[in-house]
Amino acid sequence: MPRKKTTAPAPPSCPVCQGSGEVSRTVHVGRKRRAVGEQTGLCLNCLGSGEAPTA
């Protein structure tokens, strides 16, 4: 009888960055704070790993 292959469940993804490890922030310039684009950075919730923190 062949054995069933089982894999470990994937760790839950980070709710802030949805598992990508990066988050985007809108960049504002000028006196009227006009939005000109987005800048990506490291997710501070999971520190770029993309997995949900366990603490």
Results as ranks from 00 to 15, higher is better:
Met1Tyr: 09
Met1Glu: 07
Met1Ser: 11
Pro2Ser: 10
Arg3Cys: 05
Arg3Ser: 12
Lys4Arg: 15
Lys5Trp: 09
Lys5His: 14
Lys5Arg: 15
Lys5Phe: 09
Thr6Ile: 10
Thr6Lys: 14
Thr7Trp: 13
Thr7Gly: 06
Ala8His: 11
Ala8Ser: 11
Ala8Thr: 12
Pro9Cys: 05
Ala10Glu: 15
Ala10Pro: 11
Ala10Ser: 14
Pro11Cys: 03
Pro12Trp: 03
Ser13Val: 13
Ser13Gln: 12
Ser13Arg: 15
Ser13Trp: 07
Cys14Arg: 00
Cys14Trp: 03
Pro15Arg: 12
Pro15Ser: 11
Val16Ser: 13
Gln18Asn: 14
Gly21Val: 02
Gly21Glu: 00
Gly21Met: 00
Glu22Leu: 06
Glu22Pro: 05
Val23Trp: 05
Val23Cys: 07
Val23Ser: 06
Ser24Val: 03
Ser24Lys: 15
Thr26Trp: 11
Val27Lys: 14
His28Leu: 04
Val29Ser: 04
Gly30Val: 01
Gly30Leu: 00
Arg31Thr: 07
Arg31Gly: 12
Lys32Pro: 05
Arg33Asp: 10
Arg34Phe: 11
Arg34Asn: 08
Arg34Leu: 03
Arg34Tyr: 10
Ala35Met: 01
Val36Thr: 11
Gly37Glu: 00
Thr40Leu: 01
Thr40His: 13
Thr40Trp: 06
Thr40Phe: 06
Gly41Leu: 02
Leu42Phe: 10
Leu42Ala: 05
Leu44Met: 08
Leu44Gln: 14
Asn45Trp: 06
Asn45Gln: 13
Leu47Met: 05
Gly48His: 04
Gly50Lys: 00
Glu51Cys: 07
Glu51Pro: 00
Ala52Leu: 04
Ala52Ser: 09
Pro53His: 09
Pro53Leu: 01
Pro53Gly: 10
Thr54Lys: 15
Thr54Val: 12
Ala55Val: 06
Ala55Asp: 07
